[in-house]
């Protein structure tokens, strides 16, 4: 497998600037994200304080960013990142359509608005899980609740239902699937909180309280600490120092995901710093292995 020098997650101003700086420093880059940059940029009405682009519309700004990146030969790989694993000397990046390897990683995935349910973090790994396919075998003859956020989760529910005795499926999206058998689908139920006592998980909702052996939460957005297991957070943001380094060696973060102010130029600036720090890290890594 090709091992990239730097994998960058996110194609907003932070991710794109990081990719440009990495390219200037002659590093191989895997840029994962959206070919249209970021919705947060393209949907902005007017931006007045971006140096060199006065009173620019979000759409034009996004075009300018992408044109800059393209002119430098930077390609965007459209794939959804499920997890980044720190393997010691390299990182394994698990995506929806395949796996990648990189010596260093820059997380520029933007601010997630996701809030865990009360009880979720407390019982994570002890009855609450984010991966139905991982834990399916442990549910032989047992019951499970799935809180689902996209139609793609229906496949995970079916996989789990092959082993589990019963699956309660609570879609939080416009459900138009045809799950059946031992999967009980209930729409329009809003989860409130999670509790776990004496081997039983309880999900309180705006309607009934559901109980089962375990609860699976299949969100589209993954909290950074779930995206990168072992990552230290600072509240809702990734904890970084001035060099944009995180607590995991070789892994950097930049942009909104590191905290306020949520400004485009701040994000781009941090992207630049993160890339330069990744380059220094790569040099150290090279020296250590020589």
């Amino acid at each position: 497998m090709e091992r990239f020098d730097i994998a960058i997650i996110g194609t907003g101003p932070a991710g794109l600037e990081a990719a440009i700086t990495a390219k200037v420093r002659n590093k191989t880059v895997l840029l994962l994200g959206n070919k249209g940059s970021s919705d947060k940029v393209s949907k902005a009405h007017t931006i007045q304080n971006y140096l060199g682009l006065p009173n620019v519309s979000g759409e034009d700004m996004s075009k300018a960013f992408l044109a800059h990146a393209t002119s430098m030969g930077i390609e965007i790989t459209e794939d959804k990142v499920n997890a980044v694993y720190s393997m010691g000397k390299y990182f394994a990046i698990q995506c929806h359509s395949g796996d990648y390897e990189a010596s260093s990683v820059i997380v520029a995935a933007g601010m997630t608005t996701m809030k865990p349910f009360p009880g979720e973090m407390e019982f994570l790994g002890r009855g609450v899980s984010y991966c139905a396919t991982c834990d399916a075998a442990l549910y032989k003859g047992k019951t499970a609740i799935i809180i689902a956020y996209s139609a793609a989760d229906e496949e995970e529910a079916e996989f789990l239902a092959e082993r589990a005795q019963k699956v309660y499926y609570l879609p939080q999206y416009e459900y138009a699937g045809n799950l059946g058998g031992n999967i009980e689908v209930t729409c329009d139920v809003k989860p409130d909180s999670i509790a776990y006592t004496e081997g039983r998980a309880y999900l309180a909702t705006d309607k009934d309280t559901y109980t089962a052996d375990g609860i699976f939460i299949l969100r589209e957005q993954i909290a950074p600490s779930q995206l990168v297991p072992g990552l230290q957070m600072d509240g809702n943001h990734i904890g970084v120092d001035r060099s944009m380094a995180t607590n995991i060696k070789g892994l950097f973060a930049c942009g909104d995901i590191t905290g306020a102010p949520y400004q485009y130029i701040k994000a781009a600036g941090e992207g630049n710093v993160a890339a330069l720090s990744a380059v220094s890290y790569l040099n150290e890594l090279k020296k250590a292995t020589e």
Partner: peptide
């Protein structure tokens, strides 16, 4: 009592003393 994997269980003289669930970096 494993409900989620990967799970790392530490035993001291055969008694379960600690457990960690999910991937963790080497350090």
């Amino acid at each position: 009592g494993i409900m989620n994997i990967p799970a790392i269980v530490v035993l001291k003289d055969g008694e379960k003393v600690d457990m960690n669930v999910g991937f963790v970096p080497k350090e």
